[in-house]
Amino acid sequence: MRETTVKPNRGYGRWTPFWFLAPAVLTLFVIGIYPTIFALVTSFRQYNIARPREGFPFVGFDNYINVLSDSTFWASLLLTARFYITVLPIQLVLGLIIALLLHKPGLGLLKSLARVVLVVPLATTYAVVGLIGRLIFNREFGVANQFLDVVGIGGIDWLGSQGGAFAAIVIMDVWQWTPFCALILLAGLSMVPGEIEEAARLETRSKLAMLRYVQLPFLLPSLTAILIMRSADVLKLFDMVFVMTRGGPGSATDLVSIYIQRVGFRIFDLGTASAQAILLLILTILISRLYIRVLYREVN
């Protein structure tokens, strides 16, 4: 304890923090841990609520074996990974350009305005982002094709073709999450001590050298934060894609959360879906561990 001079006298035992923590911890336990255990148990059962007459017998690791040998599940994980490595570089480059523009001295009012409106994409309801996407990428009356007409590309069937649908969800994700990267990188840029930046400006006129040797070292923690947070968010990504494409056409946008949702709530095979969810949870826990290890080491 910090205070050694004042002897605790009232309400101060070893158990004091416990009483303050108990309500939150207990609640999270009931609504978070208990369902997780329930899912774990379900994942070892045959559990199809569309066929209740068969009962819900324990089947050992059958569900896991099925999931791990299910090529569609692997395809959805692979597609999720492909989506991640597609959106991330775009978001990082655009985010860095935005951050540098906002970091650059001068034009105070315009800069504050730009910084504030960056919040708009982040706050937009994910499902509504999907609705907007459906309108913008409509083949006949969508504004995306109108833009492309200007440069001479015409009539792309965005949501009706495999490549088009994937590109469309990438663009909407880039719109929504580039500001996130920009704001984190901007926070990193403002960590560079002013005098170091000034000194470097006198040494070199090259913006690239400045970025590489002066600013990049301060940006590394931001970059790690982005890499890890975005990977967790892409694994979670559901709302926008569900509204825009339902995973289709075919399996062009069948990300892992969409696939598990379909197995659970369209096919009602909750045993298999639970096994998939548990595997996804394990993956998430590994990412969280990484997150803590890398980012919170210095804090705690």
């Binding site: 369902p35 967790a232 949870l281 998430t284 990412i287």
Partner: peptide, 10 residues
């Protein structure tokens, strides 16, 4: 970090 789909099923 956890995906809602993990808890949505149980």
């Amino acid at each position: 970090m956890t995906s809602p789909i993990v808890l949505a099923l149980p």
